[in-house]
Design a protein around this nucleic acid. Sequence first.
RNA 1: GCGGAGGUGCCGGAGCGGUCUAACGGGCUAGGCUUAGGACCUAGUGGCUUAGUGCCUUCUCAGGUUCGAAUCCUGGCCUCCGCACCA
Length: 844
Amino acid sequence: MHKKTIEKKEKDENKISMINFLTIEKKWQKSWAEKKVFQISEKSNKKKFYVLEMYPYPSGSGLHMGHAFNYTIGDIYARLKRMQGFNVLYPMGYDSFGLPAENAAIKAKSHPKKFTEEAIKHFIEQQKAIGLSYDWTRIVETHKSDYYRWDQWIFLKMFEKGLAYRKKSPVNFCSKCNTVLANEQVHDGKCWRHTDTKVEIKQLEQWFLKITDYANELYDNLDLLKEWPERIKAMQKNWIGKSYGTQVDFEINGKIWPIFTTRADTIYGVTFMVISAQHPRLYEIVTREQKKEVDKFVNKIKSTSEKDLEGLEKEGAFTGSYAINPITKEKVPVYTGNFVLAEYGSGMVMAVPAHDQRDFEFAERYKIPIKIVIQPENQNLNLNSMKEAYVADGKLVNSQEFNGLNNREAISKITELLEKKKLGKKTTQFKLRDWLISRQRFWGTPIPIIYCEKCGIIPVPKKDLPVKLPDDINFTSERNPLIGYDKFVKVKCPKCNGNAKRETDTMDTFVNSSWYFLRYCDSKNKKEIFDKKKANYWCPIDVYIGGAEHACMHLIYFRFYTKFLRDLGLLNFDEPTKRLFNQGMLHGEDGYVMSKSRGNVVLPEEVSKTYGIDTSRLFLVSMASPDKDVEWSSSGIEGSLKFIYRIFDYYNNLKSKLGKSSLRLESRLNKVIKEITSDLEQFRYNLAIIKLRQVFESMENEKQISKKDAESFLKLLHPFCPHITEELWHKIGNKTFVSKEKWPSYDDKKINEELEKQEQQVNQTIEDIKNIIKIMKEKQNKIPEKVYLYLIPKELALYKEFNEIIEKSLNLKINISAVNDFKKYDPQNKAQKAKPGKPAIYLE
RNA sequence: GCGGAGGUGCCGGAGCGGUCUAACGGGCUAGGCUUAGGACCUAGUGGCUUAGUGCCUUCUCAGGUUCGAAUCCUGGCCUCCGCACCA
């Protein structure tokens, strides 16, 4: 073998052995744990900062690169804030109740606890291997009774305040989950977990939390959440669905039936009423003669779920009753119909066929009169030619004293009249419905309620909490094993000591996640849910990171819980998190979302073997802005690896470079410190990395660097690559943890744009030379060997400084002389072309 | 239908009034180094032109504002994502 080859090979091998990623990672993970580097306490005079990622469901299949992406985003932020001198709360926990573990238990005839705890163990190992800087002493696991007892405690508090109640109503049922679901968990008529399973409607008596009591605040406060993505706020607004309108009291058979409308201006156009076929009081107004017809219709409706009604033809049946319009005193027929929602408004509408498309279709079908009460400006509506309802604005007609009025004005005028006559009022309606929390499943928080034959519904006394899930239970069937498990079910009534039964339903797991962020503040408290002082010190969360899929579930619920706990006097803030960051989804190389079933998952532990976890972290956030979906690329990570190699090379040979940084390098560094800091704070990680690359290139091009500047670069890199930077930090002679070092500061005075310009000038010269070389090759078929630069004397020093860089980038010798140097070599008299900022060039 | 986000070179993705053929990365092409390959390094990557120049064409499309637009305004087209008979 050639000597050179051997050298090369040695160098290569040296490189590989030099970066044994796994050894480095393990070493620092161990060291961080031993020295409790990330443990924090509220006893600190630093300012607090709370970074939180949505805690995971500990699935049996462990975590993949998509999770790693999510946690890395938070870890980078937490590390930045820690270095910036904040007292950072950055915890992790597990949403460990839930169906998959229970289903696994049923399959294996085992206990879900076993699966859950194994999965958590695996998760923790994997998360530690990613280098996430959690304070592991604060871990929260929702399946542990020292956590869920406080779910029960909150439930009882809500019960006391009338916010937890039991009601029979039509509810969503998923046959795959074998339980009911909240409205929020029904997506497009399907179960959120089983997107191919249609939700059925069942009439059941269930437990609800009265989230609607907070509907208004939940809606209005969205405007105060300046640091939430617009998209999420829009989705929540949509979901809560606030609309302003008028309550109008119609009279049917001597009774008042209030209805809600946003179009009080059309009240003179009401020609019939429609009550929802699912309305609980429907039969109060069905006459004997019409009962058969209504029954027939209602039965037909029953077989189709509420969500399925979409796109159906408007259908209904006459109830036999008539309603009296409070303004006109006209009698109009009341129908029942399939297009009126029982749960919205009052479940009944006043129908104005001329100005509402649904009413129009219904009226056409049942030959009900249509009455025009709004005429557009430049068009004349005519009953005979009307093909659809006119829903836009116009002037009122056929409306007695309101004729001629603009319809928008008429809304408030007519409402005022109704208010004056006490026949209605201005009101607000919400789409949001109460939160159904009962689940007919085992693996969740037991609802702390006892049913007594004599006393009825009795809450479990707080001193008896927690109501624990039994460990010694057999999963033999699909059914919730609590049913019929006497040790659990049979109890004495806390009130009369008579025979009673426990509720066997458990709570929706979204209950657990509605307040877990508060428990992190005081996770080991055995006496109370949390120490008020601690929670109010750490909270609200400063940055909350998670996927957008929770926009109308968790992200609404946890706002609701926060407000409730505030009203209990436990919290002194209104919103759980100031800032919300939605990370994008990591897709596999095939372009699809990473999932086990698709077989496109990339495992961090696999990638780490060859590239190191820091390389993966760096790569994950360098691809694009972290709020965008990104695709994993096995060739892309090579680019990050190259960068890591260069950094290692640089710091391994740092000694030979230590000295004084040039003004130019100082300027560069100060500039990027400034920019990178703000990029990181705004989650523009991808841009920060580009700047890191650029400044590193400048470092490589400089002969010398000060120790401080060399250290600054490592600090800037640290949030992305915590293990490697820790390693290099020590390699260059430090004994501290870079994790705990102070984030580099910058000095605006040191940022010198003039120096940047000079460098640009030199680069321009290099470009020019290259261009000439190209032309020489093409036109003259000559390859130049030497470059002569003629400079105005003032620029001589600059080009001498860059001499080496220019030679390196051209791979040619250059010869620099001043234009006024008589002895210079200039056969073609090029020197005269030199100008300030632009040297003359001669090649040969 | 309502609401939100977008459309940039071969690809991912920056830029959001001049310094833009447009950062950075990937890919590709060529060259160097190598017995060879890989790795690594260097260069090129809209077109024409030129001893370092000049010109044209480009940032979804069509108009407009401006001395000047990828960037601002108006309108169209397309994509993605929520919600959807909510009275």
